[in-house]
Design a protein around this nucleic acid. Structure first.
Lengths: 357, 357
DNA sequence: GTGAAAGCGCTAACAA
DNA sequence: TTGTTAGCGCTTTCAC
């Protein structure tokens, strides 16, 4: 068997009495090689079980056909769907993806970025850790002009492309929807405001109140980590309140659902007593009772878009080179959890405030 | 700035008037280098912003510190949790992971395997595509003694390690639980039997019936792709039946839930008229009403275990070298969806049939 | 404890 | 259309 030594282009060259260069060129379908030669080379390569050595190729070319991917954590619906989309595109274009999770820690994120740099990835796809403060750790990439595309949890930075949804507008619209349903004391359960998406969602919430002539009440803003546990805690907190909210907009579905379940277990009626709205449109929102009103987050599409932009850029197709931000379409999905009015026709909101203002 | 040319060990060598060999050795803490030299080299390396070039290193050493990972699809709860576990371990030991999804197609799986081989991964982690028929496409790996670890969707093969749960026993136990709750006509909604996990779950179901003196009725076995859609279809199918089942065991949670919801929407009482049980213990099982009885699948642990075994093997720590199969603990979790009896004390089954028989 | 030198397999500028 | 040649940056054997 060919168990031992690897077949190289030199072996093929020797066998065909041509130079290694000719073999190399044939294998990559170089234009200046005759079809006859190409055919012979390919045949012999296959016959001998030749496999191109990517290490040598990478060393020579100084690039690896690899994209680095850094996410807060892998096992969430949003993130794993985004990755699925990226992987599909990367695969189509012959890129590998190496992944790492920052687990929400800026320290780990930095070490991952360094590792990606050492691995000499051709480009980087990043969703920032919650507590990422500065962009300094990306300097190595920026200095060497290695493209970085941020998605989901981004940071305004002129040097790189951001793929996002309009969190502000979506939050604004969903809050307005709650108002239109008759809610007047709307609570917002938010994530840490150091993460752009949560800050924006919170801002959308506040502005919607403002524009509707409702006051923003500090007691109705809860900031936590949006986990199951925090959802239950928030639910208990509401149960303690003498003056309860009549609507709750939560910055993600998971937390929304656990909060809602806690209230229901205590006998509260959703949406009659308290309307609920979440964010992301996770599959679970169609299962929970009542079904959760939420914002559709185009995860898979975001993954595709981010990977496609990065690869386009690497290929020199400068289609989106002047874009600093790409905003994907996201719309609110109205379900039972927020329908206080008996209008069964779920109205989708179409217009909103100036986006990204 | 050091924007342009990369710093190499030669640059460091020149600066210190030593040889490149000495620099190389210092950097890897070689024993035959004096501490003084090492210290100097490290200092200069840091000062000059030296980054080891992994391409050159890999080319020279003929290996890459990279694990290949092939999964059917990324965006499922089970898979993304498994990956999260793997990534954590890989990261701890300085390995990168490159991932690819087979999207359930054997063809894509084969091309991914080839790609991994070309990338010269040090080892492979694989959950097989549904329709993987033979193991031939792994021959390149087996011939070169590159370790392959299968997990979740495996295939008995003496040449590699399998990390699994006891699907047979879990299915057996959960079916027996339904029987103990008084079910006599238990339907099983199964995945394609070409996938080991579904074949095993089905076998466990059948044996549990048999051992309880119940007949296996072909009309009560539905095979589909276990998606949402199939769950709804299965639900409608049940609604059409004149002699309905009084219990349903579904091979995954997602399908179970959609099936159950379909029946509930039609007015059927769960679990009184029909008891339900799923498989995986996805978060959603604790949200749906009634909460779904299921089998706990240790995803994260499975990912950790698979990665750890592979890396152990690569490091020469032959702890599990003689093992062909590692079975992780999985237990059934009894919830409302299957409790026909009013025994609120949810009894966990502890014993079962001979496992993996 | 350190250095010289060879070479991993490939690509690409230049030459023919 | 094809060949020659010179590395890419690192590791490692052998020599001192």
């Amino acid at each position: 068997m060919k168990e031992d030594r690897e077949i190289t282009i030199y072996d093929i060259a020797r066998r065909l009495n041509v130079s290694a260069a000719t073999v190399s060129r044939s294998l990559k379908d170089h234009h200046a090689i005759s079809n006859a030669t190409k055919k012979k080379v390919h045949a012999v390569a296959r016959e001998m079980g030749y496999r191109s050595n990517s290490f040598a190729r990478n060393l020579r070319r100084q690039q690896a056909n690899t994209l680095g991917l850094i996410v807060p954590r892998l096992n969430s619906y949003v993130v794993s769907s985004i990755i699925a989309g990226m992987e599909k595109i990367a695969n189509e274009f012959g890129y590998n993806i190496i992944i790492s999770q920052s687990l929400g820690s800026a320290k780990k994120e930095i070490s991952n970025i360094d590792m990606m740099f050492d691995s000499r990835v051709d480009g980087l796809l990043v969703s920032l850790a919650h507590d990422a403060k500065s962009m300094d750790h990306f300097n190595a990439f920026f200095n060497k002009h290695i493209p970085v595309v941020f998605f989901d949890r981004v940071c305004e930075d002129a040097r790189s492309l951001n793929i996002v949804i309009d969190n502000y507008k979506s939050a604004y619209n969903i809050t307005r929807h709650l108002i239109e349903q008759g809610c007047r004391r709307i609570m917002h359960i938010a994530g840490q405001s150091s993460t752009n998406i949560y800050a924006e969602r919170c801002r959308g919430y506040k502005d919607a109140l403002l524009h509707a002539g409702l006051y923003f009440d500090d007691n109705l803003l809860v900031v936590n980590d949006l986990t199951e546990k925090s959802g239950i805690e928030a639910g208990n907190q509401i149960l303690q309140m003498t003056e309860k909210p009549d609507g709750v907009f939560v910055a993600n579905d998971l937390c929304a659902i656990y909060c809602m379940q806690t209230l229901r277990a205590a006998g509260m009626k959703i949406p009659q007593e308290i309307a609920f709205a979440g964010f992301n449109n996770e599959p679970i929102t169609k299962i929970v009772e009542p079904n959760l009103t939420t914002v559709n987050y185009p995860c898979y599409e975001m993954g595709e878009m981010a990977a496609r932009c990065l690869i386009d850029h690497l290929s020199g197709a400068r289609t989106v080179d002047n874009a600093n931000t790409i905003i994907l379409r996201s719309e609110i999905i109205v379900r039972q959890s927020s329908l206080k009015m008996k209008n069964e026709t779920a109205l989708l909101m179409v217009d909103g405030p100036e986006s990204l203002s």
